[in-house]
Simulated scan of single mutants.
Amino acid sequence: MQLTLGPVLFAWERPQLLDFYAEMASQPLDVIYLGETVCSKRRALSLDDWLGLARDLREACKAEIVLSGLTLLEAASELSSLRRLCENGELMVEANDLGAVQFLAAKGVGFVGGAALNIYNGHALAELTACGLQRWVPPVECSAELIRQARGQYLELVDVAPLPQIEVFAYGHLPLAYSARCFTARALNKPKDDCEICCQNYPEGMAVLSQEGAPLFTLNGIQTMSASVHNLLADYPSLQASGVDLLRLSPRVQGMAEVIAAFDAVRQGALPPLAVQGCNGYWHGRPGMLRAEELGVC
């Protein structure tokens, strides 16, 4: 399976972003996603900056570079920016909103269907494939069984077209939901229209605890994420058996080189660990915040 580096989901400042990708250029990655997917107010890098970074990375490494678009569009200006991204003319685009699908389908170019498109079955997959979808990123709550069923249903519906590649979110805080309200600004008593990009003070999101003090969620601007880090390294054999083609590793502030090395070692033949820290319940069709060994399904 190929290893992909998902777009940075958190609000990192420009020097941190550039330093991070300079380090990632030397990693054994097959695909690198670039771009802002959470909030249009985060302008540490403009679209021109992302394109320039993409050109630099293409010279520095062999990985395919993909541009990721916004997930939740809320203004006409964001739609205009999305159109420009879809018409970049150089790089494949990850569509995280149906507006992007419309732009890309009208141009007749292939695209990656991001998890936020909410494709859960073979019928929807076939519909989007007809629009140009070439790679499917299932919603993060999809289990191995659901992906196998969607894959089989698609193959029954479509006789000629090849099955799109399947890319599973395999590591990182799970992006669970998006809202028009900025929860980080709300927590700090700031209005969304004058938030001062306060999420930059939380490079891995703001932790939310239950009344008992247990980790519950991670707030990242308008995005609600899992408290625990999702990790499917121990599930590598079942990922292979489910027909998964690519594993997405979502960037974190520290330790990404070690994470990539661990996944790379397993795909090169090393035995996967029996268990890992974090959560993997969704993959086993159980509550996502739990580990499979806690559920007795390992």
Rank of each mutant, 00 (worst) to 15 (best):
L51A: 09
V137W: 04
A261G: 04
G213S: 06
R58K: 15
E90I: 08
I119E: 07
N118P: 03
M24A: 15
L271N: 07
G221A: 01
G288C: 03
A257R: 08
Q134A: 15
L219F: 05
A292T: 14
L29C: 08
A227T: 06
Y21R: 01
G114V: 10
L18N: 04
G281D: 05
A130N: 04
A25E: 14
A60Y: 10
C39K: 01
E167F: 12
V229C: 05
L274N: 02
L67D: 11
Q223C: 13
V109I: 15
W136D: 12
A144Y: 14
C142V: 13
Q153K: 08
L155P: 04
L91W: 08
A257S: 11
D159L: 15
Y120I: 13
F263N: 05
R291G: 13
H230Y: 13
A116M: 04
G110T: 12
S80C: 11
E23R: 15
Q2T: 11
L125W: 04
G221C: 07
E94M: 13
A115T: 05
L17V: 10
A106G: 06
A180C: 07
F10C: 02
W136V: 13
S226D: 03
V8Q: 05
V137M: 15
V8F: 04
A44Q: 05
A124C: 07
L174W: 00
G205Q: 00
A60H: 09
F111N: 01
A150E: 11
A11R: 03
W283K: 01
E212W: 05
L233V: 07
Q200S: 10
L70H: 03
A262C: 07
L45A: 02
N96E: 09
E94F: 08
L117C: 10
G288D: 02
V253Q: 14
V160H: 01
C61N: 04
G99K: 03
E64R: 10
L219H: 00
G281N: 03
P272W: 14
Y236A: 08
L133D: 02
Q240Y: 12
S179M: 05
Y178P: 01
L133V: 14
C198S: 10
P215G: 03
L53N: 08
A227I: 09
I147Q: 05
E90V: 09
Q16C: 08
A75M: 01
Y120K: 04
C198Q: 06
P287S: 02
N280W: 14
L98Y: 05
R248E: 14
F169H: 02
I65S: 07
Q165G: 14
P203C: 02
G69D: 12
T218A: 05
T224M: 06
L133A: 13
P191I: 13
A261L: 13
N118T: 06
E90Y: 09
G296M: 03
L239P: 03
L51K: 01
T4F: 09
L290G: 00
